[in-house]
């Protein structure tokens, strides 16, 4: 009984290590093909459309509401200390440092990541990937790498849009509805939000999330069991793994960037 349990534990450990190894081989192959894709921008623009443009609506709307909630909650707390003028700082710092990159990554994982996994998984299940290989076309370079690069490029842009819309949402609630002084809102924000420490670090974070989310999504699709059940499982796994990876990685990156 105990031995059975141990064997099962060992088997799942070996399986996980194997998958991790395959995922890294795939990452290497995609990076090898990156130069080729950059020379054919058509391939890339189609994926920027799929990942970027199609995610724009959900990112914009979410950013607006998150910013508005931050404005409201921040005001309720700050006004007790007579520091309502700091609302701009609170909203902007929270968005630029954390919520912008993280929430964008989670939304992209749900919106675009799952679609990528399903697309690649279905292409595998319907033998399209084998078909490409038989046409002497490398499916990793031709199909996966453009999506990978598209994700990496789209993610920081989406995060920037999320944060910018969020700041405007916070401004709307704080200044427009609650009567915080507009000058103080912006000047305090500008005084406290640092370009390098906050904005650039936020961009670096979202690039890292872009790599992780698209990598996981593509690997789950490429490694799927080629049946309809397998594809649906991979799609679920893609979102769950991507969300966990983003949150875990966020902690590590935050510790590296802000924890002296």
């Amino acid at each position: 009984m105990l031995l059975d349990g141990l064997a099962r534990l060992g088997r799942s450990g070996i399986g996980a290590a194997e998958r991790l190894g395959r995922a890294h081989l795939l990452l290497g192959a995609m990076l090898m093909g990156a130069g080729e894709v950059l020379r054919r921008p058509r391939l890339l623009s189609a994926q920027l459309y799929n990942i970027g443009v199609l995610s724009l609506l959900i990112i914009g709307v979410s950013g607006l509401f998150v910013g508005m909630v931050l404005g409201l909650q921040g005001y309720i707390t700050l006004v007790q200390f007579g520091a309502a003028e700091s609302l701009g700082v609170v909203v902007a710092a929270a968005l630029v440092r954390e919520l912008g990159p993280v929430v964008t990554a989670l939304l992209v994982a749900g919106r675009a990541g799952s679609a990528l996994t399903a697309e690649i998984g279905l292409m595998k299940a319907t033998e399209q990937l084998s078909g490409l290989e038989m046409m002497a076309v490398d499916p990793v370079r031709r199909i996966l790498t453009p999506r990978f690069l598209g994700g990496i490029i789209a993610m920081p842009l989406l995060a920037a849009i999320f944060s910018a819309v969020g700041v405007l949402g916070g401004y709307f609630v704080g200044v427009g509805l609650l009567g915080v002084d507009a000058g103080a809102f912006w000047s305090q924000m500008q005084a406290k939000v640092d370009f390098q420490d906050d904005i650039l670090n936020g961009v670096i974070k979202s690039v890292a999330f872009g790599v992780v989310v698209t990598w996981i999504a593509l690997f789950q699709g490429y490694d799927t069991v080629p049946t309809s059940e397998g594809v649906s499982r991979s799609t679920t796994r893609s979102v769950v793994h991507a969300a966990l990876a983003v949150l875990g990685l966020d902690f590590v990156l935050t510790a590296l960037m802000y924890g002296d």
Binding site: P156, A160, S163, V167, F195, I199
Partner: peptide, 15 residues
């Protein structure tokens, strides 16, 4: 739009 947002964050939000 992405670059405008980044520019906005850099010039209007940060120092």
């Amino acid at each position: 739009a992405g670059f405008v947002a980044l520019f906005f964050l850099a010039m209007q939000v940060s120092n």
